[in-house]
Every structure is written in C-alpha cells, then in structure tokens.
C-alpha cells in the first residue's frame, strides 16, 4: 500500500509539475487553433481532395512497379499454377493492411511464403501513404488508425488504470498463446513464428489486430472492439515502461533461458570456484628456515 500511494503520487507529480500548467495552456491553444483552422479554412479541404487524387496516382505508379507482379495490375491477386494465390487480392483489404505490411518492411516480400519477416522499409512514409491511399481506393476496407484510436492519453487516471488492467486480461487471453506473456514471440508450425512485439509501434500493433496479417487471425472490430484493442496496446506499453523489478529479463522466454542461466552461469561459476578452492597454490623450492 505504501508503494501504491507513492507511485500514484509520482504519476500525478509528473503531470502537475511546474511545467505542466504551461504545457496544458500551450496544448489548449494549439487545439483551439487547430479546430479553428479545420472548421474555418475550407479551401484547405479542397486542396486535400486534389492532393488525395495525386496521392492515389502516385500510389498506383509505385504499385505497378513494386507490387503488381504478385498482386496483379489492379490488385486483383495472381494465382500460381496450382491455383493458390501468389499474392492475394487487395480489393477491400484497406489502407491499414498496406500501412502495416509496407510500414514494417514486410512488403514487398523477398520470396513467397506464409512467414513474411519484418525488414528495413523499402518505402518512405510518403510513399507508404500513397500506396495505402491507392489500395484503399480499390475497395472499402479498414482505414489507418489514428492516434486517438490507440492512445489512452485522453483518459482519467482511474480509466487508464482500468484500461491497462483490462488490456492485460485481453492480451493474456487472445495474444499470449502465440506472442508469449510479455510479447517476446513464439514458434508456430512449419517454421513460422509469432514475432516479438517489443519494438512494434502502437499503430502497427493496432493494424495487425485489425487486419490479421499473413497467418495471424483477425481481431476485427466485431471481435475485439476498438477500445479493447486500445487497452491491449496500453498494457503492452505499460510493460515496456515497467522497470525490470527482478533484474535482467533473459529475453522474457520463460524457463528455458532460466535453466540455461542456472547451468551456464550458476553451475559454471560454482565449479570455477570449486576448482579454485581445490587448486594447489604456488609452491616454492625454498625451505622453511625453522621448519
């Protein structure tokens, strides 16, 4: 209980520090300014429509060069000689799927297969957005989530705590079976794996749940509500921010690395000590004077 109060106090101290007031005022000003601009400045919207068309065109150009070989000229998908999809149709997958696949470097993929590894992104943010806009124009699908969707910033203290707790329970029920209890990842059949979530951004986690990339099942909004997805992300972020109370984490993979540490470090050190204890010390040819 002592610690509870202290940490609660600490959290609020962070927000109510001397700078907090200034920050809140600045944020408020920016927000009102933003709303004013959005509401009043209608010409900007027109510009946006124009730029959206341009963006789709840019996306289509990129798509034809980098994606159409597998996904088809119009994203209709291409089948190999067995009738299986070389690349699945992209009509209706939505911008979220593109943002995830391209934004984590999974697409364009190097070779076909169920497991598509994450790698350094091929496209920059602007190009990814263009591709996403193009694929979204092919048919309605999940849009790229915004920060409001996956952030718990707007909630009160109690709501946040409840969100994190609930997110933890949802995570442990739906996600840990594959991704492990702290998101370190796990093995799947035939060389597949559920990736480590330690570095994945909130937006990409959200998109993965929403679209079910590759072999991962969907957790569409009818399955896990947007709030529940947000809570899962909040829990994962709370794990990242949590100190390692017990020391270094050994990769968070459970008893296997713990057993290895016991043998290699523990027994290794102790046997080393045993060898030192039983080793004969330096000898000399000198005789003891009065022996």
């Amino acid at each position: 209980m002592r610690l509870l109060n202290r940490s609660a106090g600490r959290l609020s101290r962070h927000r109510r520090g001397p700078l907090a007031g200034v920050l809140v005022i600045i944020a408020g000003l920016l927000l009102t300014g933003g709303i004013f601009t959005a509401v009043v400045n209608t010409t900007a919207q027109a510009d946006e429509t124009v730029s959206n068309t341009e963006q789709i065109a840019q996306g289509r150009d990129l798509f034809l060069v980098s994606c159409s070989f597998c996904h088809g000229q119009n994203g209709e998908g291409i089948r190999d000689e067995d009738g299986d999809f070389l690349g699945p149709p992209l009509i209706g997958v939505g911008a979220a799927a593109v943002d995830f696949q391209v934004g984590t470097g999974r697409m364009p993929m190097v070779q076909p297969g169920a497991q598509v590894p994450s790698k350094p992104e091929t496209f920059d943010d602007e190009e990814t957005a263009a591709l996403a806009a193009y694929v979204a124009s092919l048919g309605p699908g999940p849009a790229i989530p915004t920060e409001d969707d996956y952030s718990i910033e707007g909630l009160s203290d109690e709501e946040r705590e409840a969100a994190i707790t609930r997110g933890g329970q949802i995570f442990l029920t739906n996600c840990t079976a594959c991704h492990n209890f702290e998101g370190s990842g796990g093995a799947m059949p035939h060389g597949g794996y559920a990736p480590n979530l330690g570095e994945t951004s909130a937006r990409h986690i959200y998109e993965a749940m929403l679209t079910g990339p590759q072999n991962m099942p969907n957790f569409a909004n009818g399955n896990l509500s947007p709030d529940e997805k947000r809570d899962v992300i909040a829990y994962l972020y709370s794990l990242r921010e949590m100190p390692d109370y017990g020391g270094f984490g050994l990769g968070g993979l459970g008893p296997v690395p713990e057993g290895m540490a016991a043998w290699l470090l523990g027994i290794g050190l102790l046997v080393g000590f045993a060898i030192w204890i039983a080793a004969h010390t330096t000898r000399t040819t000198k005789k003891k004077v009065d022996a």
Partner: peptide, 20 residues
C-alpha cells in the same frame, strides 16, 4: 467473448477471425 462477456453476432466476425 472471454474477459468482457459480450455475445457474438455472426456478422461481427470476418473470415480469419479468432474469438477466444
């Protein structure tokens, strides 16, 4: 649904969905 206890309509689910 586990944890939250809400009932499920068939239309809630998409192909590829997994509900615990």
């Amino acid at each position: 649904r586990d944890v939250v206890g809400s009932p499920i309509r068939p239309s809630d689910l998409e192909i590829g969905d997994l509900v615990n």
